[in-house]
């Protein structure tokens, strides 16, 4: 079927403005502004690696940071309400204290991003995000055993 519009009235431009698209556009520009602000203030370099603290611009102790590291094996312990563990990256380790129980798929030997402030050598975290890798393996004991686990670059093997 022929759906070509007949070229009848296209020459005359109608001044038919509708309020809905203008309202949407206003919202879009506002949302875009918020997103750009977030992007410029915090999101560009999302986190510092543990070994970058004190070494890289913006990764100083005493200011609010997001730090990435792999949770060290055997360091996770809970005392009352807080969870303590240490994370390391590039052979540098850092103790972390977190009020509460980490969510997601938090466990040993997994890379995490902790939000908080480094004070007196202990990173006081108030938010933990688990950074899972882009490796997907079936939950199958045979295949896991066959894998040598070189991807994490450490001898760490999570207790499943």
């Amino acid at each position: 079927m022929d759906l070509t519009p007949r070229p009848v009235a296209d020459s005359g431009s109608r001044r038919r403005r509708r309020w809905l698209p203008i309202a949407v556009l206003t919202l879009v520009i506002a949302a875009g502004g918020v997103i750009v602000t977030q992007f410029l203030t915090s999101a560009i370099d999302y986190y510092c690696n543990v070994d970058e603290i004190g070494a890289k611009d913006g990764c100083e102790a005493g200011r609010r940071l997001r730090v990435q590291g792999v949770v060290d094996e055997g360091t996770v312990s809970e005392d009352g309400t807080a969870t303590t563990f240490s994370i390391s990256f590039g052979a540098v380790s850092m103790p972390v204290r977190y009020e509460g129980e980490p969510g997601g798929i938090f466990k040993e030997c997994i890379p995490v991003v902790v939000h908080g402030i480094l004070e007196d050598g202990v990173f006081d975290g108030d938010r933990i995000e688990v950074k899972h890798s882009n490796e997907y393996k079936a939950e199958n004991p045979d295949r896991v055993a066959a894998d040598d686990g070189e991807s994490k670059g450490s001898a760490c093997s999570p207790s499943a």
Partner: peptide
């Protein structure tokens, strides 16, 4: 939204 602002096609 811009597509729906009106005017000729």
């Amino acid at each position: 939204a811009v597509r729906n602002l009106g005017g000729s096609h």
